Computed example of a mutant assay.
Amino acid sequence: MTGLPTETIAAIADELAGAERDRTTIPLLTARHPGMTVDDAYAVQGEWRRRAVAAGRRPVGRKIGLTSKVMQAATGIDEPDYGAIFADMVYENGSVIEHGRFSNVRIEVELAFRLAEPLDGPDATIFDALRATEYVVPALEILSSRIELAGRTIVDTISDNAAMGAMVLGGTPVRPDDVDLRWVAAMLHRNETIEESGVAGAVLGHPALGVAWLANKLAQHGDRLEAGDLVLAGSFTRPIWVQPGDTVLADYRDLGTITCRFV
């Protein structure tokens, strides 16, 4: 249940849009609105997303966050969340990316699912998610936090579009029944040094479970995943900080490599 007045939700959405536009951060929402709930946070995100669509941004999918124990430990938050992906957030493999476009910039290693058909909750299963998937492809997520990091709760994170900044797609697309997705592994390099590694099974035991979780969570908010949607299933490594001048490369072995450079 939402507890914040509609005008407060709108005002927070305005703050977050301004922080994204001005590339700044705002103080913790939970410190200023101590009674704020997860439902309030999704209401803020929904209002921010609605305004972005009205302004001409094209939605292309959703991201799932905090689906692995390493990410939950890294953030101190113990449940998944989701956010919106717009077309202007998606970069091709090998892109040169403006670091200053984002705030608190970090990189995560993930798999992205491209859906061939809609996926409805509230009772979606892993098998429904796999059946609805056209292909799975390596992805890097660029985290951007428009709310100060210290002391964040899941309410702050959800309101902040689950810290979605952008994503890079690359490597080799595979059909979900052509590979055991649990055992897709990656090594994450920054400037020729391996910083993180992991396997996709760290995401809830199977990354497609994240997609099913998302479909069921969206159903609670009167929404669903559509054919053609891109779903970032969640990181299976801890995030690494990146600075201007850094080159990032993730090696997924049989699924290829994905890279980007920040300037």
Rank of each mutant, 00 (worst) to 15 (best):
P5K: 14
T6Y: 04
T6A: 15
T8G: 08
A13M: 13
G18C: 10
R21F: 09
D22A: 15
T24W: 04
T24I: 15
A41S: 15
V44Y: 01
Q45V: 04
R50F: 00
R50V: 04
R51T: 12
R51Y: 06
V53L: 08
V53Y: 01
A54L: 12
R57D: 06
R58T: 15
P59N: 03
G61K: 01
R62M: 01
L66F: 08
T67I: 09
S68Q: 08
V70G: 05
Y82Q: 10
A84P: 07
A84Q: 12
M89H: 07
V90S: 05
Y91T: 04
I97P: 08
G100C: 07
G100A: 14
S103G: 02
N104A: 07
N104R: 12
N104P: 01
R106M: 06
R106N: 02
L111A: 06
L115K: 01
E117I: 06
P118W: 05
P118T: 07
L119V: 11
L119M: 11
D123V: 05
A124P: 03
A124I: 00
T125E: 06
T125D: 04
F127P: 00
F127M: 12
D128H: 11
L130V: 03
L130H: 00
L130A: 02
P138S: 14
A139I: 09
E141A: 15
I142Q: 13
I142S: 12
R146T: 05
L149P: 00
L149H: 02
A150Q: 10
T153S: 14
V155C: 07
T157W: 11
T157K: 11
T157Q: 12
I158L: 11
S159Q: 05
S159P: 09
D160I: 02
D160K: 06
A163K: 12
A166F: 11
A166V: 14
L169W: 02
P173H: 05
V174R: 11
R175T: 08
P176N: 03
P176V: 04
D177H: 03
D177A: 05
D178Q: 12
L181A: 07
R182H: 02
W183N: 10
V184L: 06
A186I: 00
L188G: 14
L188A: 12
H189P: 08
R190G: 03
R190E: 02
N191W: 03
E196T: 11
S197W: 12
G198L: 13
A200F: 11
L204K: 03
L204V: 00
H206P: 05
H206N: 08
L209W: 00
A212V: 00
A212I: 02
A212M: 05
L214D: 00
N216D: 01
K217F: 05
L218F: 09
Q220H: 13
D223C: 09
R224M: 09
A227P: 04
G228Y: 10
D229E: 06
L232C: 12
A233K: 00
A233L: 05
G234C: 10
L255Q: 09
I258T: 11
T259Y: 07
C260E: 06
R261V: 12
